[in-house]
Design a protein around this nucleic acid. Sequence first.
DNA 1: GCTTGACCCTGACGCAGCGTCAAGCCTCGA
DNA 2: TCGAGGCTTGACGCTGCGTCAGGGTCAAGC
Lengths: 236, 236
Amino acid sequence: MLTIGQLAAYAGVTVRAVRHYHQIGLLPEPERDASGYRSYGAQAAVLLIKIRTLAEAGVPLGRIAWMLDADEPAFAEAIEGIDAHLRAEIDRLEGSRKQVAQLSAGNSLVLPPQVVAYIDRLREIGVSERMLAGERDGWILVSARWPDKVVEWIPDKFAQLEDPRVVRLYQVLSALTETEGTDDPLVMEAVDLLVELACIRDRSSTTPRTSRTRCRTRCSTILPTPSTTGPSGCAT
Amino acid sequence: MLTIGQLAAYAGVTVRAVRHYHQIGLLPEPERDASGYRSYGAQAAVLLIKIRTLAEAGVPLGRIAWMLDADEPAFAEAIEGIDAHLRAEIDRLEGSRKQVAQLSAGNSLVLPPQVVAYIDRLREIGVSERMLAGERDGWILVSARWPDKVVEWIPDKFAQLEDPRVVRLYQVLSALTETEGTDDPLVMEAVDLLVELACIRDRSSTTPRTSRTRCRTRCSTILPTPSTTGPSGCAT
DNA sequence: GCTTGACCCTGACGCAGCGTCAAGCCTCGA
DNA sequence: TCGAGGCTTGACGCTGCGTCAGGGTCAAGC
């Protein structure tokens, strides 16, 4: 006969675990010897190893108890379920490995790939990292609120970049975020471009250059949320 | 700005988890709006997704906190550790799948393969399942107490089976466990064989047949633990 | 204006599966 | 015979949230 320590060592579990199994009724309490020590036979070892095997496979102890007094077909079915669960878990961990690798690669995993592609496109155009960060933050907020809309919008955003004036606007705004001064001639150019693009949208896309002063007053009302420049506004 | 529900949904975690991360200081508490609701920005989403990614990889939250304010090389090293851990975990689960499959195959996984081979050999010889069960139980107890000795003993046990009288003894005892009666002629044969084999061991292996009566008295003292028949005694 | 349902808030307890003391008795090898 | 190590019960601790209680808030429809 075996003591609890011998049993536990043989089954590859801790003494504490065995006692826990007793407590919850998973493993029946054995006879005690004269001094009150638990005294185990071979059946207990067989049972305990079964329990350990299932527990290591992630089966909750309650379910193990259920399995142990289930009939043969039910047991086999349970085993099938456990195997499926193990396979799923392995797949999940494989996925997790990839995610974690992305994380260390500096990729933030935070945006859908289409948006990432769009931001990469902006980077190619020459947009500053500061402004890109703003873009990204804006897209995150937008994606969080309208997850499925974003995928629809991105093609339009790509299309806008076909217009060289939009590209130029991004470049100018980008340059502005890099420099400290505000009375730069770039500011004028930016305003011009904004006005022009805003007016196009307003008047159904067919209005040539308007006088600077007239449009500036109109555009000042538009500036707070210039939807042409992306979700984050101007990222100032 | 996002509410806690929007943030949680975007990051793929529960609201409760986000609050928990606040509680333990893993995610900083954001500003509140007029009504006391938490109001999150994009940075929080980035951070939360980082946290979720690591948490799903099995990294304890305390360690995640540590990682989040570690420098670049330390972070990279931690990621390497996490990946190693994930690989190990995947391997463990693969192993677990095999073990569980064994379990459903009826294999009890409880004995070292050498012992299993020995018991299979006994089965070939024609030993009854009842007696095999006894053998197995005995070996389990022995293996539990002297795990490394067992591997040494098994070759001897195999060698004993070379002797046709030992084989016959097993068969006879086996037949006895199957039948109910005790005054069977098989009993006499079993005793004869036991006596003979026991005497051989006693007198250094060179004593011919002794008279039945003389040996029987001697053997009766040996019967309780006849070491020739395996660890479980006679498995009565 | 009022209701309704979906959110949000804090605070607290609960859960698995043991680890880890504490404080005392038992066993075994030297 | 003695000291180290093993056994006993009992109890609290840990992680990572789930879940309930008992409220306030917001947006929409009637």
